[in-house]
Design a protein around this nucleic acid. Structure first.
Length: 600
DNA sequence: GTGGAGAAGATTTTT
DNA sequence: TCTTCTCCAC
């Protein structure tokens, strides 16, 4: 390995970052504020471990929360080192790997995604005499329970039997759901003492990213792998924990000291992303609601910066148009208005992909998308329609997988349960399988839909066909079904429209947060107000240069007209950090005066 | 197994 | 408000 490269890497870190990257031995907690170079630290740390011969690549276990984050770290390591690299994986993929290795004799389990798992669970519930509605409830309850370890399904008597049945079905069909992956790994390691010791001996260094999003079950898995004095590094930011609805337990951070005595804590408190004003506003807001929460004082590397702009709008339409108009001005649009604006304020030109509009509910994105497009602003709205999968699409999906010979047993049974018996017979399936080799994916899909006698003119199937049309070779059909084929591409010249959740981990020079009203932010249905606060904190700390908050005094929502009060969170931002934007009513007059000055 | 009336419920999203 | 779900009658 090139030592100079590593040295260069370490030299570019600030003292706290470097201390974290080169922390020698024992448990370590790195509290990394927004924009404080968390990924750099993780990457440098792995590079340092390897270069100092502290570990071989296979002795390092690096766990991230998403595949995307895992890829990013892998890629950065590849660039820096280009040698044999440690595997960076998610909890789920690591667990899967472990189970695969531990079960060579048995049939390989294939993970299925949540939608399919839910279907199977519901089938089981119906077979055991539960009603459909009840089945949905039970699934939710089970999901919650499965985030804990030891598992306590007995606490809900009706669930006990059902869960047993469900697991049996999963096993029989040779599939596994995501929660079960973690649980199976836990079962395996708690039972097989030798295997556990073997792993402990093998894995010398553990690094956990996004610790604030780890579930209790995942934490138990970590504890099984790491003795009390292990070389384990937790990286996270409790202020950015926003995923409790899918099992994250931010309180776990308080258990660390007891579970790993001698734990050292390092703060990364220099923020390279946001100006000081945004940081101060965001932390003040966070502290106001949770006085007991330790919110670190973040120092910006960029100076004071601009104030946080605040715009009050008459209603949601005015808000959407104001955002559209402001974006147009910022990018130096060609309308008369924009040219004047650009000249008057001496703005630097921006491109669309430097701008993001954030909001709490996907529903708000619809109007924004419409209005921005109306103004000729290109938009990028990844992952908007997550649950557009209807039963036709499900059937089609099953048949697609059967024809591609993936999880054949599972999909055959699921399809059979949804269609008439005689539909799914081997000889016609074989015919379809042969057809697959000859024709394009879109054409095949159409044939499959016709075979199932689905309504091929329905919007869902037409939409799917359209999206699949330009695909070749193999691809993930379920992604296309969920409308997620167009993933967030930041190089694409368009304004990003995102939920606050989806914005996590991203940054943009210019950020709008729309719908900053009581009832929306915090979302009234969420009882965890603190988490809503953290979500807003995440939103505010995405901005590099300019931050605009807006709210509407009236908003139509689910048929009701709601009177919009400003979000209480806005009131928690010190007034001196805010810059109210006034309504520029006398538009004509303004243009006139400006024209006059030109002739002066 | 289909269709229609009526009720319910409507976040956030990764693996 | 508007879409989706549920359930019962046919």
């Amino acid at each position: 390995m090139e030592q100079s490269k590593i040295e260069q890497m370490l030299a570019s870190l600030n003292p706290a970052q470097r201390e974290a990257a080169t922390y020698n031995i024992g448990p370590l907690l790195v509290l990394a504020g927004p924009g404080s170079g968390k990924t750099r630290v993780l990457t440098s740390r792995i590079a340092w471990l390897l270069s100092q011969d502290k570990a071989e690549a296979n002795e390092i276990l690096a766990i991230t929360f998403t595949n995307q984050a895992a890829d990013e770290i892998s890629q950065r390591l590849q660039e820096a080192l280009g040698q044999e690299l440690p595997r960076v994986s998610t909890f789920h993929s690591w667990a899967y790997q472990l189970l695969k290795e531990g079960r060579l004799d048995k049939e390989l389990l294939t993970p299925i995604d949540e939608e399919l798992a839910k279907d199977l669970f519901k089938d089981c519930a119906l077979n055991l005499g539960h009603k459909a509605k009840e089945a949905g409830e039970l699934y939710k309850t089970l999901s919650k329970l499965r985030q804990e370890w030891p598992l306590n399904v007995d606490s809900v008597p009706t669930l006990n039997k059902l869960y047993g049945e469900y697991r049996q079905q999963l096993h029989r069909l040779g599939v596994c759901d995501f929660d079960e992956l973690i649980l199976d790994a836990l079962r395996l390691l708690s039972d097989d003492h030798d295997l556990r010791q073997e792993l402990i001996a093998k894995i010398k260094w553990i690094l956990i990213d996004e610790f604030q999003d780890v579930s209790p079950a995942q934490y138990e898995l970590l504890k099984l792998l790491a003795p009390k004095n292990a070389n384990i590094t937790f990286v996270g930011d409790p202020c950015q924990s926003i995923y409790s609805f899918r099992g994250a337990e931010p309180e776990l951070i308080n258990h660390l000291q007891a579970d790993f005595p001698g734990l050292e804590t390092i703060w990364l408190d220099i923020c390279y992303r946001c100006p000081q004003n945004f940081l101060d506003g965001a932390s003040h807001m966070l502290k106001a609601g949770a006085p007991n929460l330790f919110v670190p004082k973040l120092v910006s590397s960029k100076g004071t910066g601009k104030k946080i702009a605040l715009k009050v709008c008459r209603d949601e339409y005015t808000e959407a148009r104001w955002i559209a108009r402001t974006i147009d001005k910022i990018v130096g649009g060609l309308s008369f208005d924009s040219i004047n604006f650009g000249k008057a304020s001496g703005q630097t030109m921006r491109s669309f992909n430097e701008i993001a509009v954030l909001y709490r509910l996907n529903a708000l994105g619809d109007l924004l998308e419409k209005e921005l497009k109306l103004q000729g602003i290109p938009v990028n709205r990844p992952g908007k329609a997550v649950k557009s999968i209807n039963s036709d699409l499900k059937k089609l999906h099953h048949l697609w997988e059967i024809v591609h010979n993936k999880n054949r047993k599972f999909h055959l049974e699921m399809l059979a349960a949804k269609t008439a018996e005689d539909k799914v017979n081997e000889s016609s399936l074989r015919e379809l399988e042969l057809m697959r080799l000859r024709i394009e994916p879109a054409e095949l899909l159409l044939k499959l839909a016709q075979y199932l006698e689905l309504d091929i003119d329905s919007p869902s199937i037409q939409g799917l066909l359209k999206r699949v049309k330009h695909q070749q070779g193999s691809f993930n059909l379920s992604l296309f079904m969920r409308d997620e084929a167009d993933l967030l591409d930041l190089n694409f010249e368009a304004v990003s429209l995102l939920t606050l959740h989806a914005a996590k981990g991203l940054e943009f020079p210019i950020v709008f947060v729309a719908g900053c009203e009581t009832g929306l932010i915090p979302w009234k249905e969420n009882k965890l107000i603190d988490e809503e606060r953290r979500l807003f904190y995440v939103g505010l700390t995405r901005a590099e240069d300019e931050l605009y908050l807006s709210y509407a005094k009236k908003r139509s929502f689910w048929g009701q007209r709601i009177k919009g009060e400003p979000s209480p969170f806005i009131k928690d931002i010190p007034g001196n950090l805010l810059r109210p934007i006034k309504t520029q009513r006398p538009k004509k007059q303004k243009a006139k005066t400006r024209q006059l000055t030109l002739f002066d």
